[in-house]
Design a protein around this nucleic acid. Structure first.
Lengths: 219, 219
DNA sequence: GGCGAAATGAACGAACCAGTACATTTGGCA
DNA sequence: TGCCAAATGTACTGGTTCGTTCATTTCGCC
């Protein structure tokens, strides 16, 4: 909670400065990168410690264990993701425009937050073992589903979308197409040589994904 | 190459029996499960050795290192996957039927071969580092693309499919939707409680994916 | 202005784990 | 049938890595 120290402007340099919040935040930031890069078993506590301003001792002081730190990273990462997602104002747009916007946003967000993608990949490699321990996370996704449901219901009511589809299913498709685009870029890109002109290729892929989703829900 | 021993029917029990091919195959089988379950860094050579009829010594004798074994597992797994895929006879079917069959097959195959999915996930966590070392693998995917291209071109020629689409892009979408369905089942399923009546939910998901792909390519 | 809990630092230990040294057996072949 | 390379078993090691022990410093509060 406390972001900064109260009094005492830094004067005497040689002494230590206690700042728990900053210490924890620093650890989390470094740990996020490490776990995203190497996964749970590949990550090294010593490397995380070395990259922070503080020591390994503090990691255990605040997070208890490697797994505890991993879980904290996971939760923080989910929290950030969902808080950004909540900023979309879809209700002002027409159903189709809203759907397009949502897919485009998801595509761009996943591309721009590959650490998040890799953490989710890692967690799926663990079979969701750690996510299951977290009460907080379950609630965080309801918003995404709700946004789709509202936009979809509007579309159906206006006769623009076909009825009988499931918002969760639509969400699954959007996630699958956008997630895979990042998560499997190495095995997929490597095999089919997508690299040259990657920019335009990605733009093309993006519009194709949008098109695919829209075509699926429209009458 | 040599599948079995030539002469010498097993008579004297107490003595050892040399069978390199069998030893290697046994190691690969166990290693596949271990790497698929735990990933490269999570896997333990000692555990693999314990689960085989042979010893850790043999693993290093035949595969050189943990990474060497991992790469061998990866290659073998890809090889198996593509050889099954090649069995589809799509050219006898109408373009749309062929497309449906391909998607259904891919969906079912991925669901039934989760070790393969997890190995690909693992490899993407390594940023394709090991796949890049393998000359063999690159060629193995061309068939999948080719199958789609042929079916798609037929569809366009018949005026059933819209022109201007890319076979690789279609393949990406099919892969994304079917792969994600398995790869992210834990984080996705956990969050949205898909568990009860999983059978019918999966069937529904399957037909929705097929529908989505078909709608995308049809005029 | 000092007291005690919170926060931090430095070094250590015990388990784990990839890889190896050394020794032995098997089996094709001359 | 005896020789030698291929194949295998056993026991060990050196480095790595999670986690801890012990000691010290900071700082809110009375």
């Amino acid at each position: 909670m406390a972001k900064r120290k109260t009094g005492v402007p830094a004067a005497r340099a040689p002494t230590r400065t206690n700042d728990p919040a900053r210490t924890m935040a620093g650890i989390l930031e470094v740990a996020t990168a490490e776990f995203a890069n190497k996964g749970l078993s590949g990550a090294r506590i010593d490397e995380i410690a070395a990259a922070t301003r503080t020591s390994k001792r503090m990691i255990y002081y605040y997070f208890g264990s490697k797994e505890g730190l991993y879980l904290a990273v996971l939760e923080e990462s989910y929290r950030r993701m969902r808080s950004i997602e909540a900023d979309l104002q879809l209700s002002d747009l027409s159903p189709e425009a809203a759907l397009r916007r949502l897919v485009e946003f998801t595509f761009d967000h996943h591309f721009g937050n590959q650490d998040y993608i890799r953490l989710v990949m890692s967690e799926n490699m663990q079979r969701g073992e750690y996510l299951a321990q977290s009460k907080i996370i379950q609630e965080l996704n309801v918003t995404a589903i709700e946004a789709i449901r509202q936009l979809y219901d509007r579309g159906v009511a206006l006769g623009l979308f076909r009825a009988g589809l499931d918002a969760i299913d639509i969400h699954a498709s959007i996630s699958a197409l956008t997630f895979f685009n990042v998560s499997n870029q190495h095995t997929f890109g490597l095999i089919f040589k997508h690299d040259p002109a990657a920019e335009t290729a990605r733009a093309l892929r993006r519009s194709n994904i949008v098109e695919m989703i829209v075509r699926f829900v429209k009458r």
